[in-house]
């Protein structure tokens, strides 16, 4: 086949897959059985992980990459892309995931970080990476390291959308700021944000992030998905929300429906009525002990 790298002016093959995933829902799955439900409900991709975030919060302990045989089982039953999570900085887990042949790796704060100083050098891999960010500087640092897709960190496993909204609004506001300031101020801003200067120039030129930006962390209802999409998210990741709800199949279908027509309240209402039960019980962010605030993991 052809080559993996692109000429200038062509979106690279890693971000190309992210472009194909726009306007949809990526669902966290722990087993092949859940992966089948997710695909049947219309997920654009599934995310394999050891435990969903709300269970990680509840049960504690170290959260790691999903066992390889489980990921292979999920890949065997899925015709849609399969993503899998590795710990922040755990490049050996990333190497395993690439060897297994997953379609995307999420270097994720949901798992217990393996390195508190360095993230993975994602340029080293042929498989694309998605990473989370709370603000523009963090997003551009991850893109600088080779991430091909960004998402908000939110606060996973809480069913509380407040942090995802904060991160989406903050990144939007910072992009506007970058576009509005005098060009002479850009280097100082790069210093203050800790963002690579060339990527900041690119944001200023294009008026958006150089890769797609999805929402994640706390999405628990069709209205939450519609909110994130209207704030500019190009797709949504739903973790604990689906398989911790009363009726995962109906719930997953409702979120997919609301995401496709996020700007039509009548359809989002229809989807909300089709949930087949109540959403997961939410958690107030201030009730969470500091070490379990996942959004603060990574830098």
């Amino acid at each position: 086949m052809g080559k993996n790298s692109s000429s200038s002016g062509v979106i690279n093959i890693k971000t190309g897959l992210a472009e194909m995933l726009k306007g949809g829902v990526i669902m966290d799955v722990v087993t092949a059985e859940q992966a089948k439900i997710a695909e049947g409900a219309g997920a654009i991709a599934v995310m394999a992980l050891e435990r969903v975030p709300s269970d990680i919060r509840k049960d504690g302990g170290v959260a790691r990459m999903s066992p390889p045989d489980l990921i292979e089982e999920i890949m065997a039953v899925s015709s849609i892309p399969v993503m899998a999570k590795c710990r922040i900085g755990h490049f050996a887990e990333a190497q395993l995931l690439e060897s297994i042949g997953v379609d995307y790796i999420d270097e994720s704060e949901v798992l217990t970080p393996a390195d508190e100083e360095y993230h993975i050098n994602k340029h080293d891999y042929k498989v694309p990476f998605v990473c989370g960010a709370k603000n523009l500087g963090e997003a551009l640092r991850r893109i600088g390291e080779g991430a091909a897709l960004m998402r908000t960190k939110g606060e996973p496993g809480t069913g509380n959308i407040v942090e995802a909204v904060r991160h989406m609004r903050r990144i939007n506001a910072e992009i506007k700021h970058v576009c509005n300031i005098d060009e002479a101020e850009l280097m100082t801003l790069a210093r203050d944000m800790g963002a690579p200067f060339e990527l900041l120039q690119l944001v200023r030129k294009e008026g958006k992030l150089p890769v797609p930006n999805f929402a994640a962390g706390g999405i628990a209802t069709p209205a939450d998905a519609a909110l994130c999409m209207q704030l500019g998210a190009e797709s949504v990741f739903v973790g604990s929300g689906i398989f911790k709800s009363d009726n995962p199949d109906k719930f997953a279908k409702a979120i997919v429906k609301a995401t496709a027509h996020f700007d039509d309240p009548a359809i989002v209402l229809e989807a909300s009525k089709e949930l087949g039960g109540v959403a997961m019980r939410g958690t107030e962010i201030s009730e969470i002990d500091e070490p379990m605030l996942m959004a603060n993991r990574g830098w």
Partner: peptide
């Protein structure tokens, strides 16, 4: 045949009519 060329690791850029296009899954 869906995903006939394989998974994302097989995705690539090629030239068609001298224009760079992408095969993605």
């Amino acid at each position: 045949e869906r995903n006939g060329y394989g998974r994302q690791l097989e995705s690539c850029h090629v030239q068609i009519l001298g224009y760079e296009v992408s095969f993605i899954r």
